[in-house]
Design a binder for these strands. Structure first.
Lengths: 212, 212
DNA sequence: TTAAACCTACCGATTACTCGGTATTTTTAA
DNA sequence: TTAAAAATACCGAGTAATCGGTAGGTTTAA
């Protein structure tokens, strides 16, 4: 009954004794690793560099995260928590959701390294056998379902006319956000991704009969 | 005046004596390399594997492409040529352009490995000092300008009303296409990217006064 | 005959990860 | 309160594998 922490997707996290110092180190490492991943991607980053960034030897780092994959999954889980708590309050109705998306963008616009890290990870996860493949697929599916539900609810509410497909609209919205983010990442100084999203959303609302 | 083939973005290609067999090999290698890049990305692919794929030793491959970067740039240049010749005929007016985009999608839907390779490369190129950074930036800029010009032309034509910003519309269109492609790549069986693009375009045309 | 095509045999650098320890901190028990 | 006990936090020194690239040669084709 040895408590081996296999490649879990974040649940377990079992009860482990961890010192205050250790917890602090873990957060330090997570943050440093994300910066590295933002520069070189996951596959191409050396955890030895991350270790040096936080003033640790490589085995020292591996004490906290036994494998490189564990480190990656820890980052993804952390992001999951942060996002859920941020999006939550906006999920009331369709207009609220769209407003929330703009707020997410406004916030993301001030964390370019984090956004870049996740954009690169997102694409990397398309590779055969990538350890984050399942995480990104689950996440995309769930997000699409959530948004689709809000659209569908607006239809049954009568807020908008019934000619739309919630799933399809959700996909399009996600696509626009992802795409705008990529354009911004490639040229952050010249491209205004918040403005781009606002323009899209206001035209969308207009074409749905809800004007902004 | 040594003819060192520095990190060019594709011009030179100077005059070199090359045998028929050699040309054939080059194409073989290019195709095999793209398949590898589609699975593992550029950074994480081993050119040794590519060599074995075409029945060559590693130095045998390096005879044709002296460095890994040369191989990458050769792929990008090849793609450039193919794309230009395919898009060309569609660039008449705004409606033609949008129709052309759908055709591109229809075609891409049958070359998933190629599309995936370029999507991954695209994201990889965001990394610090990535050899394909300039290529992707140039390409995105040029594409956006082309599309923007077509939108602007439609405005001065009077085909659509003057309330739109060509550059912004172009960015949005590119974003939608990129984003839809990502969704499709993540789940090709369930997601219909051609339909998604058609839906977006027809709503776009309607909201511009041009109905499809 | 001459250059291209291709090979065997290397090399130096980097990588994730292990082994076997020491130092530090926290918990427990007297 | 304190000291033993125990777990955590770390490190120096490896290791096996992989990678891009080179040196120097032979074979093949124009």
């Amino acid at each position: 009954m040895a408590e081996v922490s296999e490649s879990n997707t974040g649940q377990d996290e079992k009860r482990r004794r961890r010192s205050r110092k250790g917890e602090a180190r873990r957060t330090e490492i997570l943050s440093a690793a994300m910066q590295r991943f933002a520069e070189d991607g996951y596959q191409n980053s050396a955890i030895g560099d991350v270790a040096r960034d936080v003033g640790l030897s490589l085995p020292g780092l591996l004490h906290h995260f036994p494998t490189k994959v564990d480190l990656l999954l820890a980052i993804l889980d952390k992001r999951d928590l942060e996002c859920e708590s941020f999006i939550g309050p906006y999920r009331s109705d369709l207009r609220g959701l769209l407003k929330g998306m703009v707020e997410v963008f406004r916030r993301n616009a001030e964390m370019i390294e984090v956004v870049r890290a996740f954009a690169i990870l997102n694409a990397e996860s398309l590779m055969k056998g990538h350890p984050a493949k399942a995480w990104f697929l689950d996440r995309a599916t769930q997000l699409q379902n959530d948004i689709a539900a809000t659209f569908d609810q607006a239809v049954t509410d009568g807020s908008i006319d019934g000619k739309i497909d919630g799933k399809a609209m959700a996909a399009e919205l996600i696509a626009v956000m992802d795409g705008l983010q990529m354009l911004w990442l490639r040229d952050p100084a010249r491209f205004d991704m918040v403005g781009g999203l606002e323009a899209y959303i206001s035209r969308l609302l207009a074409s749905l009969g809800l004007e902004g």
